[in-house]
Amino acid sequence: MMSKEQCLNFCFLSLCALLALLALGLFLWPVLRLCADATALFLKGEPLLLSLGRSLFFSLRLLALVLLLVVPIAFLIASQSYRRAGRRGLRAALGVLSWLPAVFLGFFARLLFARVLGDGMPAAALTLFLFMLPFLTVRFEDALRAVPEPIRRAGKMLGATERSILFRLIAPRAFGALGRALVLCTERILGEATALLMLHGVAPEGNMLSLELYRLISLQREDSLLLALFLALILCALRLAASYRWDGSPLLASAPSADSTRKRS
């Protein structure tokens, strides 16, 4: 007999498979045509694929730089704040920051970073860092707080330091949720266009994928659809990966909230 949870998972996966088939049917033909057109253009010397490759390389470099900055700092803040009783103020501040419009952030970055650092990658990385820091911190904190409090208390009773409790007991148990937060962060960085557009506009070459798409569309090139599709597929794949429970627990099982685990304890 299947449990209710298994039934739900089965229905969800069936729905996903159906949608995937539908999407495949809808997209496959135009994609094949676009690929053929793009190959023909490339063979004729058109630099579409070159531009795509260049923007992909730029995006990955920027992504790596931003993650390198934002992950340790977000984890550090979350590791300090997840067990504090008076963390409501910090959480509220992070919430407000995470909902700041990208336009505002881009404008701020243009006033500050672009003047100091110029229009290059460091300014873009700092802008995206500011954009992602509250988002990632809140998600990391939620992931750490979802680990039942008795686990932390048991670690303390065994004479463990806070650091060793965090790295040896809490973080391994929160691994799935931390991974999901990281993938969501990656997806948001790759999909972000507004803040970067405000920062230094669209360069003739070396843009994030999202901006490169904008550039190609503004050039009124029909084959830019290929890039749009490529970007959409990457973002969809990342969003799907973020919804997967990496720790092997059922896909649709609701994660116990930190409050409920505290009450139980």
């Binding site: 670690g155 065994l158 004479g159 463990a160 060793s164 409790i165 040896r168 007991l169």
Partner: peptide, 8 residues
Amino acid sequence: VAGLRLQG
């Protein structure tokens, strides 16, 4: 051995 490991 969890306690021993946690203590390094």
